[in-house]
Design a protein around this nucleic acid. Sequence first.
DNA 1: GGTGAAATGAGTGCGAG
DNA 2: CTCGCACTCATTTCACC
Lengths: 181, 181
Amino acid sequence: MRLNEIRYARAMTSTGSPTRRGPGSVPKNVRPAPDDVDRAILHELAVDGRLANNALAERVGIAPSTCLARVRALREAGVIRGFHADVEPRALGRDLQAMIAVKLAAHARGSMGPFVQRISRQPEVLDVYFVAGANDYLVHVAVGSTEDLREFVAEHLNRDPDVALTETNLIFEHTRAAGRR
Amino acid sequence: MRLNEIRYARAMTSTGSPTRRGPGSVPKNVRPAPDDVDRAILHELAVDGRLANNALAERVGIAPSTCLARVRALREAGVIRGFHADVEPRALGRDLQAMIAVKLAAHARGSMGPFVQRISRQPEVLDVYFVAGANDYLVHVAVGSTEDLREFVAEHLNRDPDVALTETNLIFEHTRAAGRR
DNA sequence: GGTGAAATGAGTGCGAG
DNA sequence: CTCGCACTCATTTCACC
C-alpha cells in the first residue's frame, strides 16, 4: 500500500498560489501564511476535528510526525483556535433560539469592549456579532423557553444603561457550514 | 492518586434536576434525555473537543470504558453532531465577514428548503439563520475582499429570482461562545 | 449501565537525511 | 522541513459484576 499518494487535489479556495508562495510575495503580517498542505490539514480538521493524526497525515500526503508538527504550529500560531464538539442545543433543554439586535446608547459607543465581555459570559449566548449598520450588535442566544428569552432580554439587555434598544427575532432553523470554519 | 473524585461540581444550567430524572417525569420525545454525567461530558467536549477519553472519564468521574460508551451513544443519538476545528478565517485569506439579511419573494415562501441548500453549499457561507421578522434569512459569510463580497451578493443572492431584497452589513468582530455549543 | 484488565493501535520525541 | 523508528500511552473490546 502506497502511503505517500497526494490525494488532496481539492479545490479549496481559488487563491491560485502554487505549492509555496513565491519569493517576491507581499510581506503580509507576522503570520507565516499556510501553504497547500496546511490548508488541506485545516480543511480536514474542520470537517472532523477528531481525525487521528496518522489518518490525517495519510490524507494530506505527509508523514505522521511531520503532520503532528504542522498541527502544533498551526495551533500555536492561532490559526486553529481550538477543537469543539458541536452539541445539539435542544438536547440541553434549549429548544428556542433567537437573534437579538442591540443598539447601544450614544454614551456607550466609545467603549464597546465591556458590553461584549459581559454579554458573552452569559450561558445563553452562542455568538456575538459586532456589526456595522443600524444596529451595533447581533446576539445569538439559545434558551429553554419564551419565558427564559423574555427574562434574558429584560435582565441582561434592557436593564443595561448602555443599551438603547433591542429587537428580538426568533430563529426557526440554523444551519452551520461545518468544514469551512 | 485518587482517580474517582467527583470534580464536575460546575453549575451547568439551572434545570434543577437531580442525578437521574424522577420516575414520574414527562415522556418528552424519543430522546433519552442526558443525565448530569452526560451534561458534564458535553460541556467538557464542547470546551475541548480533543480531550482524551481517559482524561474526560477522570473529569466526569466514571471509568474510561463507560465514558467511551456514553460518548458513542451521544454521538449516535445526534446530541453530539460532530467535532470541528475552529479555524481563524483570516488565516485562510478571508479577512472580511458580513451578515446579509435576505427577504424572499412571495412566490418562494412556500418552499424554502432549496434556497438554504443552495446557499449553504457556497464556500463563503458560514451560517444560515432562518428567522422570523421582517427578513427571512440571515446569511453569515466570510470573504477575501469587498470585491468578493459584492460578487457573492450579486451572483448568489440578487441574481436568484426567489430573492426579493438583500441588506449587507459588515461584521467588525465575531466572538463565539466555545464551551456551550 | 458500570467496571477492570488485556490487546490493539495511536501519539510523541529523537536522531538523521 | 521531512522522515522513520522506538517507546510510551490511550483507545477499544470483552467477560463479568
